[in-house]
């Protein structure tokens, strides 16, 4: 055939075929998405520190392990309140003349998704310790230690942010660990990562592939009535990174729950209040503020009761357990008091 024996025709045909398909399947859709989406009206712009922190995030290749996309499937519900939509990325433009646009959606989740990390883990103390060496707070973590974002000073200056690092992780170095600006900027970036609420009235896209097992279980009804939630698993997912698996917390950063007065108290009001609204009551002892985990992570009364009962009965703790109904009532109560305070 003429086409196959003439190199000009053959290679032009192949190239045009490929370029045509490329335009249809890559360039036109990309253009369309670039021009047809706008950021959500209530999206907050990033602070200067956060913008610099994003550069640190990019240059250290964090995207290799951390995604920033909540897929519209039920298993991704733990990473955000709603699936990510095109508008969430619409405000992201080219970084600089050298560096391309960084949506940082990622393709691998060796570590947790970070779409909503600013809400899930807002504690600056935790983030700094975790960056210095993740295994200080999460023993099983395989994340690299970013200790080069910190310096060790004998005499920290007044404005220095000192990070509480256990001696074992100092490898014999003497002095106080001080966060350098890059570390603080990176934490500022992480704290800025929050899903923007959809404008009032617009329906949130659905999570697909909901687990059908749970539905069928509910239908048949187990003999014990309501399904018992696994308090230990919920504790691992929501509390363990600070208070640790052994409930002993981290000296000078996160208080112990083992033998804690609040946890052992038969009156659960304060404990529910702390979970729902956060806590700054022990900052004088050197402990960081606790974020409002229950509110941030959208925990239900059942889930909070399961977590509380796990805390009340583990590590040698032996306190009276609570029921979901009691927690529900207390939750309503502390919600009222929180709004009143505001």
């Amino acid at each position: 055939m003429e086409l196959f024996d003439n190199h000009k025709k053959l290679f032009s045909a192949a190239a045009l075929f490929f370029i045509g398909l490329t335009i249809l399947v890559a360039i036109l859709p990309a253009w369309r998405n670039q021009y047809n989406n706008a950021p959500l009206p209530n999206a907050t712009p990033m602070s200067e520190d956060a913008i610099k922190g994003k550069e640190v995030f990019i240059s250290n290749g964090c995207v290799a392990c951390h995604t920033q996309q909540v897929r519209n499937i039920a298993m991704d519900k733990v990473w955000g309140e709603r699936p990510s939509i095109a508008a969430d990325y619409a405000g992201i433009h080219r970084q600089s003349i050298w560096v391309n646009t960084a949506t940082l959606m990622g393709t691998e989740r060796t570590g947790p998704d970070l779409t909503n990390i600013g809400l899930r883990q807002p504690s600056k103390e935790w983030n700094l310790v975790h960056l210095y060496n993740p295994r200080i707070v999460v023993k099983e973590s395989v994340m690299p230690a970013y200790s080069w974002l910190f310096e060790i000073k004998e005499q920290p200056a007044k404005n220095d942010v000192v990070v509480n690092v256990p001696d074992a992780f100092l490898y014999g170095q003497k002095g106080k660990v001080v966060a350098m600006p890059k570390a603080l900027q990176l934490v500022a970036y992480l704290e800025s990562l929050k899903q923007t609420k959809l404008p009032d009235g617009s329906p949130s896209p659905d999570f697909l592939y909901k687990q059908q097992v749970a539905a069928s279980e509910a239908k048949t009804g187990t003999s014990t009535g309501a399904t018992v939630l696994n308090g230990e698993a919920l504790y691992t997912a929501n509390c363990q990174s600070c208070h640790q698996a052994n409930g002993e917390g981290l000296l000078g950063a996160f208080p112990a729950l083992k033998g804690s007065k609040v946890v052992l108290d038969d009156n659960a009001a304060l404990m529910v209040n702390i979970i729902m609204n956060g806590y700054t009551g022990r900052e004088k002892e050197g402990f960081g503020p606790m974020p409002a985990v229950g509110t941030n992570n959208n925990l239900s009364a059942d889930e909070i009761a399961a977590i509380m009962n796990h805390e009340k009965t583990s590590w040698g703790n032996n306190a009276k357990t609570v029921t979901a109904d009691e927690v529900k009532k207390l939750m309503d109560l502390v919600k009222d008091s929180a709004t009143e305070n505001k």
């Binding site: 360039i27 990309a30 998405n33 670039q34 095109a86 405000g91 391309n100 646009t101 949506t103």
Partner: peptide
């Protein structure tokens, strides 16, 4: 080789890389 060049151009030219365009590319 031809396609390799086309791909590199599409990936590095900045005109269609904003927002989700980056992801599609």
């Amino acid at each position: 080789i031809m396609f390799g060049l086309v791909i590199a151009l599409v990936a590095y030219l900045p005109f269609w890389q904003d927002a989700l365009g980056e992801t599609i590319i």
